[in-house]
């Protein structure tokens, strides 16, 4: 398969490049079609979704889209806006704090020698293997004991923990923060915490962005934990809210349009976060490979 071995290298090269492009094209299409459908469908009324071409707009698309958006944000006293805000709080603050905790933990595991270091790291690592869904019910029972179910904390606190983030932070800190630099900082009289925040986090920045993005997406899409923990719909994140609406479509059919438009709106912050942080992220991946 590799072109190097072939006497007709260049031709193979073109073929394999075309092949690669073709495969990537197919996958791009595969991933983008549902989003395209979502975009197109959100510009239709309930009847038009079934009655018109599924992947193309109608004559009244633009006004319909705006009226759909208007209904989405006014239905049931504008609860959808509240859900978006909740998701932003859970995912934004949760990912930020979660990243700091994971960074400190990974950094400590990478840069300090202490007894039981490997044991702790291995336990954290095994946490990566336990799916969050499996922990939801035990968490519910624990939070019931301390009477914190159906509160913001019930979703927020578990979101702060990211074993994968710790793993990534440790690997990256070990590779990108030179021990000599820390020695120099110590000699200059900088405290450990100050060194961490002023020197180490900058060197670890690409990894931190990656951890933040992963955490942000994971919390934003987290559904099972809020489903189990929350009963008050003013605390719902947008995923759970849309799911609740979707489960009522057979009885309240007008919700169909709102679920579709709501789904479109709910992925916009994710797209925005990726586009904004992509630059740092890819530089992070690149830096890792050069080492």
């Amino acid at each position: 398969m590799r072109r190097g071995n072939s006497p007709r290298g260049p031709r193979h090269s073109i073929m394999s490049r075309t092949g690669a492009m073709l495969i990537m094209g197919v996958f791009t299409l595969y991933f983008l079609t549902p989003i395209w459908w979502l975009l197109v469908s959100s510009t239709k009324t309930g009847g038009q979704i079934t009655g018109t071409a599924p992947l193309w707009f109608t004559m009244e698309s633009i006004p319909t889209f705006f009226s759909n958006i208007g209904r989405l944000f006014t239905y049931s006293d504008g609860v959808f806006g509240r859900w978006l805000l909740n998701s932003a709080i859970y995912a934004g603050l949760g990912a930020l704090l979660g990243t700091i905790i994971a960074a400190m933990c990974g950094y400590a595991l990478a840069k300090y020698e202490f007894k039981g270091r490997e044991a702790i790291f291995n336990i954290v690592l095994s946490g990566v293997l336990v799916p969050a869904t499996a922990l939801a019910l035990p968490l519910f029972l624990i939070f019931s004991e301390v009477k914190l179910t159906n509160t913001l904390w019930a979703v927020f606190l578990p979101s702060l923990v990211s074993p994968f983030g710790v793993y990534l932070a440790r690997i990256y800190a070990a590779a990108s923060v030179p021990g000599e630099l820390l020695e120099a900082a110590r000699l200059d009289g900088s405290g450990e915490i100050r060194t961490f925040f002023t020197v180490s986090t900058r060197l670890m920045a690409p990894a931190l962005v990656t951890i933040f993005l992963f955490q942000f997406v994971a919390i934003w899409n987290n559904f099972f934990l809020p489903l189990i923990m929350l009963r008050d719909q003013t605390l719902f994140p947008v995923t759970l809210g849309l799911y609740a609406w979707n489960s009522q479509i057979s009885q309240i059919p007008e919700l169909r349009v709102l679920v579709i438009v709501g789904a479109l709106v709910s992925i916009l912050p994710l797209i925005a976060a990726f586009l904004a942080l992509q630059r740092f992220w890819s530089s992070g991946l690149g830096a890792g490979s050069v080492k």
């Binding site: 019910l137 519910f140 029972l141 019931s144 004991e145 179910t149 489903l227 189990i228 929350l230 009963r231 008050d232 719909q233 759970l240 799911y243 609740a244 979707n246 489960s247 009522q248």
Partner: peptide, 19 residues
Amino acid sequence: TGPNGNSGTYQNFFNQLQA
């Protein structure tokens, strides 16, 4: 409020009864 019964609310009731 929550999703309709079989989509999660019944399971929540059972969890809550247990807790």
